[in-house]
Structure formats: structure tokens, C-alpha cells
């Protein structure tokens, strides 16, 4: 992927929620680049900040209580965090589009599919109603829906979950955005439908050259779809790299734990190994490695200092002192002990 131009650059993004119980840093200084035409996965458990990241990019963090408190999101030479609402509206749906987890509730139940499909076109393009409708119908065909003309006049409750998610995808892509953010697009669907939707997203990514930011908690989804993946934990990126690389050779203990807790069909008898402990509440750990309390390789430095992202291979980084060149020797010893 490196070599292709960047379409989106997130630098040191911080998004916090100002609640009665204090300030909760849901996203705590994350940086990544999204390249043209790639599918980048963001994976992590619930509450790790992956959804807040995507909403921050869209400028849709519920505010109050949420607020972007630092960093920048660069798109087309502009910092999206600095745009006025009016300018941001032109970006949403037109340059960056989003699909959500719940196809059941993400479509407005009282408007026809046609009216919801053409809405973004009527906002962002000069197409008339008739042309917008034709364009919307083409898009619905492209996502593999049957009897498109009828569906245009139907309401969401008349469609199945899988069909609705196809409609959501078509709706997001109808203005041909450069970036598609998909927040858990398959989580609410049956497994067979999941596979279809993922295949569809991959096909559209290749065909329309739209960069996709795929947010999921499911490593299987990442393995099937993404080229690169970012692993998030407690508001931070803990590992970033090519999917094949990370699956074969995870560099962060958390990633390793995640992979071990996924069932592998090749070894039937093997018991799954869950990661001990729970995800810390965002903001609960202010010093040291966020994962230290649950980490089997923990040593003194982990709770004393904040680890950085250390490069292990070209394009592969991990936020772990074990990958710090200075710690190489200590690392070996720890591994022997465990």
C-alpha cells in the first residue's frame, strides 16, 4: 500500500467525553494514514475507542458531552477538525461516507428507500430528481439487490437485514466518496449474510477504488477483507501492520491474546484462551502501558513509562517495550521464563 497517495491522515487525535464523572479520553492520541483504494481495518474490543475514532472523522461525535480535544484529521489538504459545520456538511456523504452497525435502525422507517437513496445526491450534486433516482437505482443494482424499481418505492421494514445493509452501502457509495467508513457493518447480520456483505464491500472497493476504513471487533472479518490493520486498546493504537504479518507474527501481547481467543478450525480440540481481566475503563490508566495489568510479559518498566509505537518490520509497529530495541535482551529472558 505504501507508495499510493494518502487520502486521510489522522495525527494525534484525541476525543474526550466530558461527563459528570470526569473527563473520559475515549480516543487518546491516535495517528494513522489511510491510502487510496486500500481497506484498513481497525480492530479492538468494545469501548476501545474505534467507533469514536470513526465518528470523530465524520465530525459526528455527540456533543455535548463529546469533543475533539486535540490532533488533526487531514483530508484533501484540510484539517477536518477545524472545519465549520457548514463546510463539514459538504464533506459528509460526498467525500467521506459512513455505514453503521445496525441496518435495522439506521434507515428511517418512514421514508421510502428511493427517497433515502436520493437524499445525498440531491444535497451534493446538481442532479434533478429523475436523474438522481436513476443513479440510485443503478447503485442498488450494483450492490446486488433484485427488483430494484420496486424496492425504491418500499419502506425499510419491508426488507430483510441483509438487504437493508446493502441499501446502506449503496446509500453511502451513491455520491462516490473517496472514503467509506464502515462501523461494524456485519456484526448485526447472520454469518452467511456477513460473508456476502464483506465480499460485496471488497468488490466495490476494487471497482470504485474507494478507500475503506473497516471498524470491527472480529478478527475473522479483518483476515478476510483488509490489507492492513490497526489494533486498538483503551483509546490507543497498540499495533499496526499488514494483516498477513500481524496474523502470522503478532508483536503486541494484546494482539497475541486476541488471536488466541479466536477459534481456529484446524485444531479441533484446542481450548480457547481468553485474555484474563477486563478492558480498563477509558481514562482509568494514565501512566504506563494500558495493557500492563493483563499482560503475561509485564515487567517493571511497563507501569513506570508510557510505551511508544516501536517499528519491528517496515510498516509494522507495536506499542510494547518488548519491541524497543533497548529491551531486546530482556525480552528474550522473559520469553524463556514464561
Amino acid at each position: 500500500m505504501v507508495g499510493k497517495p494518502k487520502v486521510l491522515s489522522v495525527n494525534g487525535l484525541r476525543t474526550s467525553f466530558f461527563t459528570d464523572g470526569g473527563i473520559v479520553p475515549a480516543v487518546d492520541g491516535i495517528s494513522f494514514d489511510l491510502y487510496e483504494g486500500e481497506i484498513l481495518g481497525i480492530v479492538g474490543e468494545s469501548g476501545c475507542g474505534k467507533s469514536v475514532t470513526s465518528l470523530s472523522i465524520m465530525g459526528l461525535v455527540p456533543s455535548p458531552p463529546g469533543k475533539i480535544t486535540g490532533g488533526e484529521i487531514l483530508y484533501g489538504g484540510r484539517d477536518l477538525t477545524k472545519l465549520k459545520e457548514r463546510e463539514m456538511r459538504k464533506v459528509r456523504g460526498n467525500d467521506i461516507a459512513m455505514i453503521f452497525q445496525e441496518p435495522m435502525t439506521s434507515l428511517n422507517p418512514l421514508f421510502t428507500i428511493g427517497s433515502q437513496m436520493t437524499e445525498a445526491l440531491l444535497i451534493h450534486t446538481n442532479l434533478g430528481k429523475r436523474k438522481a433516482r436513476r443513479r440510485a437505482a443503478e447503485m442498488l443494482k450494483l450492490v446486488g439487490l433484485p427488483r430494484v424499481e420496486e424496492i425504491m418505492d418500499e419502506y425499510p421494514h419491508q426488507l430483510s437485514g441483509g438487504m437493508r445493509q446493502r441499501v446502506m452501502i449503496a446509500m453511502a457509495l451513491v455520491c462516490e466518496p473517496n472514503i467509506l467508513i464502515a462501523d461494524e457493518p456485519t456484526t448485526a447480520l447472520d454469518v452467511t449474510i456477513q460473508a456476502q456483505i464483506l465480499k460485496l464491500m471488497k468488490k466495490l472497493n476494487e471497482r470504485l477504488d474507494t478507500a475503506v476504513l473497516l471498524i470491527t471487533h472480529d478478527l475473522g472479518v479483518v483476515a478476510e477483507t483488509c490489507g492492513r490493520v490497526i489494533v486498538m486498546y483503551a483509546g490507543q493504537i497498540v499495533e499496526e501492520g499488514p494483516v498477513t504479518e500481524i496474523f502470522r507474527n503478532p508483536q503486541h501481547p494484546y494482539t497475541e491474546g486476541l488471536l488466541k481467543s479466536v477459534p481456529d478450525m484446524r485444531f479441533k480440540q484446542e481450548r480457547l484462551e481468553p485474555i484474563p481481566g477486563n478492558v480498563p475503563r477509558p481514562g482509568a490508566i494514565r501512566h504506563g502501558c494500558r495493557f500492563a495489568a493483563r499482560c503475561p510479559y509485564r515487567f517493571d518498566r511497563c507501569t513506570a513509562e508510557d510505551p511508544e509505537l516501536y517499528g519491528t518490520q517496515p510498516g509494522h509497529f507495536a506499542r510494547c517495550f518488548l519491541r524497543d530495541k533497548k529491551e531486546e535482551t530482556a525480552h528474550d529472558e522473559t520469553l524463556v521464563e514464561s
Binding site: 453503521f100 435502525t105 422507517p109 451534493h124
Partner: peptide, 25 residues
């Protein structure tokens, strides 16, 4: 509701999100 967020993610004006999408519901 999620569909209010969807409408906003399309770049719809807040006024129309409120008076069209939300009010009808």
C-alpha cells in the same frame, strides 16, 4: 436514533434532519 445519525452522515442540514427525519418519527 441511528437513522438521525445516518441522515447527518449524508451531509444533510441539521434543520432538515430535525424537521424532516426526526419530526415525522
Amino acid at each position: 436514533s441511528d437513522f438521525v445519525r445516518t441522515a447527518r452522515s449524508k451531509g444533510q442540514k441539521m434543520f432538515l434532519v430535525v424537521y424532516k427525519h426526526a419530526l415525522k418519527n
